[in-house]
Structures are given as C-alpha cells and as structure tokens.
C-alpha cells in the first residue's frame, strides 16, 4: 500500500480506532473466500491498478474515469467512521476518500434518476472465490443506494485506510463506505456505477430476502432473524475473557445526520 496525502475532516468519531492488523485480517469479501481470514490470505494476485470506473445510465455526462486522475482531482479526506457488520461485530476505521457526491456532480444525474447501482469487478483468475464449481454468490456483487443517500455528505468512496491506499482485502482500489448502514452495503472494488429509476436488486437481498433488505440501516430495534442486533462485539477491543459488547446505536450513531432521510418510513418493513 502506498502513502496517501489526506486532509483532516470534521467526520471523526471519538472512539479508539480498531488496530490496522484487525482491520486488514478480518474481512468479509466472498470474492476471495468465505472465512474472515481468506481475503487477506487469497488476494495476493489481485491487481488493483490501473483501474477505471464506468459511470452510466441516467446522467448527462456518462464516462469512464481513471482512478488515479480522480484521486488527483478530488481532495482526499481522512474520516474515522464506525463500521457495523450485519453479523453483530463492529470496528472503528480511519478511511481516506472523497464524497460520492463529488463524482455524482461531475456526471450530472438526470432529474429522473432515483437510485445508484454499484458493481464489483469480476476476475476469476485473480479472485479465487469466483472460480471453480462451487461459487458462493452470483457475480458480480451488486449494491445500491437511493440517490439522496448516495449524495449524503457522509457517503464516501474510500481509496485508502490508515493513510495508505486500500489493501486488496479491504476492497482495493476503491470501495463504498456508508457508515449508517450495515457493512455489506459497502461494496468493494467498484468498476461500475449506474444511475437508474429502478431500485437496484442488491446481492444479499436477492440471495436471502428474509434476512437482508435494500436499506440495511443499522437498527438495534430490528433483529436479524438469527440474532439480536441490540448489541455488537467491538473487534480488537474485546479480549478472550472480557468480551466487550457495545450497545448498537440507531443508524450506527449517525441518526442526527441521516434520520431525516427516512422520515415517515416504516423501518421494520424496510429493513
């Protein structure tokens, strides 16, 4: 990973960041395998550079953008966010990136665009989880946001963590970070974004609609069918004996910023 020059930002939670060793060895990235250690172990052959992102659909100025040019164009900010996985564990991660809104402004979404759909790269030769007769998910991995969620100042396209470019296992070279949503919304190694008026069918919702929805807002009041979401294990902080459980906060602690996006919505039905 190469050093990134990032500027401080006001988005910095006042909690101890999770050690980088844990952030880079405990990952869900099924393209590289199902175990938490697989992405770190199996992503050595992945080549994140050069990289381009195609932005198409309902926009005035569609295009294919070179990642290194984007990093030069937009100031890279350092933002320390809470990260809450749907599996009831959490981390605190110092990301480096730029707001998704910056890129959206550049392509000028049409008035009719309501959603953004995201797509992960498919490279079976470099991603062992996409190869072979047993495949865990349908590729490519798909995610989506409502346009107002995508434009929200908290929504980040991360290109690094801890001041260096993203390790392969964390979604190199560019990934989404939406801190008030469960981690699976943070799609990794993005190659395409499409502006659309149809709600995207995200991978986990398609795979298991009883357990995973489109919105996936962190919500301690709505249980996962197989476990409670009321509390979370903070990775790196809890040892073997003093398991440190934190209460899970509505919208992962970002309610002041984002709750208004969902005013009047039934969050139990739209989980």
């Amino acid at each position: 990973a190469a050093a990134l020059s990032a500027v401080e930002s006001k988005y910095k939670v006042d909690e101890k960041p999770t050690p980088i060793k844990d952030v880079t060895t405990y990952n869900n990235f099924y393209e590289f395998g199902l175990d938490k250690g697989d992405p770190a172990a199996n992503s050595g052959d992945f080549k994140p550079l050069p990289w381009t992102i195609k932005v198409d659909g309902m926009v005035n100025k569609p295009g294919t953008f070179d990642l290194e040019a984007l990093i030069k164009e937009f100031p890279i900010e350092e933002r320390t966010y809470r990260m809450r996985c749907v599996e009831a564990w959490s981390m605190v991660i110092p990301w480096d990136g730029f707001p998704l809104a910056s890129l959206l402004d550049k392509v000028e979404p049409l008035g009719s665009a309501k959603y953004v759909a995201f797509e992960t790269v498919v490279r079976p030769d470099e991603m062992p989880g996409q190869k072979g007769f047993f495949q865990s998910l349908d590729w490519p991995y798909i995610e989506g946001l409502r346009l107002d969620e995508a434009r929200h100042p908290l929504t980040l396209l991360a290109v690094g963590l801890y001041g260096e470019t993203l390790p392969n296992q964390n979604g190199a070279p560019i990934r989404l970070v939406v801190p008030w949503k469960y981690g699976f919304k943070g799609i990794k190694s993005i190659v395409r974004m499409t502006l659309t008026d149809q709600q995207p069918k995200n991978t986990w919702q398609v795979t298991n609609p009883q357990e995973y929805g489109f919105y996936a807002n962190v919500n301690p009041a709505v249980d996962h069918p197989r476990w409670s979401q009321a509390s979370e294990r903070r990775i790196g902080e809890s040892g073997f004996f003093g398991a440190s459980r934190h209460p899970t906060l509505p919208f992962n602690g970002y309610a002041d910023e984002v709750a208004s996006l969902y005013a009047g919505m039934d969050l139990k039905a739209n989980f």
Binding site: K36, W89, F240
Partner: peptide, 15 residues
C-alpha cells in the same frame, strides 16, 4: 491460543 491472544481479531467467535 485464545487466552494468549493468538486467535485473530474475533477470538471468542473463532473459538
């Protein structure tokens, strides 16, 4: 391994 902190990032779940 767990008691001596050699069981990775989430030792309790791993065990």
């Amino acid at each position: 391994l767990g008691a001596t902190d050699q069981l990775g990032a989430d030792p309790v779940k791993t065990f």
